[in-house]
Design a protein around this nucleic acid. Structure first.
Lengths: 174, 174
DNA sequence: GTTGAAATTCTACAGAG
DNA sequence: CTCTGTAGAATTTCAAC
């Protein structure tokens, strides 16, 4: 009947998240191959209703895209590293941004702390990382880099839909 | 007719990558909603051929899963940070691993360098990050943490299928 | 938002190059 | 190993409640 009596949906920078959308997103993050019938059953919705909401989530940009997550080893990306970069000045990032043309570069962030830029890179061995670092040092404005080579990855997952609302007290873990 | 007369499929630790598989993986990383007909057309294969190869890629584990990539803001994850952790000793990571129960934690790696562990976390603001850090400090073995808060993300993408085979000389970028 | 049915699409299986 | 063509099955999508 009513699409929804919540008008916030049209408030442009709207966070597209009510309880049901969260559940849908959580399922789709885990497995985006589900049919709308299966998806609906998991969250307690009919197929057409699930389809309608997912379509909206896509339109709003909440779902950016659906991607196959591949094993890095399948494409010979055996070495994962985080590279901290110290630059001279700030605006000079445009030259640095050129390294995104290398598929080995997965993330580029500007950060607070004792580094300016932070890269996540995945190469086929140490030599390829060296080549990449060579390009970094050849980039105008790059003063120094510090690399953190990953020994083991214990967890690596895409952005989760769930959020911890009520944080438990500190002395709980272990 | 023949499922396949290629026995290599059973050669266990096979790197699943020939030229065509790479192209398929590259397309599926970009958009996994393509039909086998569309996918085949993009890489120069018929639908059944594309289907057969993709099925193999899934069996081999080259394709781990198909996931919806969502906008962090859609689920109120406005703050991204990388947390370096210094621990006392190494094996004590089991207690630390408990923090994976928080959906805010996206990655956990052990790394070389001046830190032992590296976390990628995405929280709803600074307070939630503080809560998370509180749990970290309350974890046995955690000596200190250094957080790098992300100001801007210029690039963030899943593992790419392509690989740079021939690295260009250093003085090319800019 | 739900149910039911029609239309379209895709998947899977033949045989042939 | 790949292509064309077909049959089957699943989905998406539209209708009405």
């Amino acid at each position: 009947m009513e699409k929804t009596d919540d008008v916030r949906q049209n408030a442009r920078p709207v966070p597209p998240s009510d309880a049901m959308d969260r559940k849908l997103l959580a399922e789709l993050v885990e497995d985006a191959t589900l049919s709308y019938a299966e998806l609906g059953k998991k969250v307690g919705l009919s197929a057409p209703a699930a389809h309608e909401r997912v379509k909206r989530l896509r339109q709003r940009g909440a779902i950016r895209r659906v991607a196959a997550l591949i094993d890095p080893q399948a494409t010979d990306k055996t070495l994962l590293a985080f590279v901290h970069i110290d630059t001279a000045g700030w605006g000079k990032t445009t030259a640095l941004m050129a390294i995104r043309r290398f598929p080995e570069v997965e993330e580029i962030h500007s950060v607070t702390g004792d580094a300016c830029m932070l890269l996540k890179v995945r190469t086929d061995g140490a030599h390829a990382l060296e080549q990449l670092l060579g390009h970094l040092y050849a980039t105008p404005g790059v003063k120094a880099t510090r690399s953190y080579v990953v020994l083991s990855t214990y967890l690596e997952r895409p952005v989760q839909a769930e959020k911890t609302e009520d944080w438990p007290p500190f002395d709980v873990p272990a």
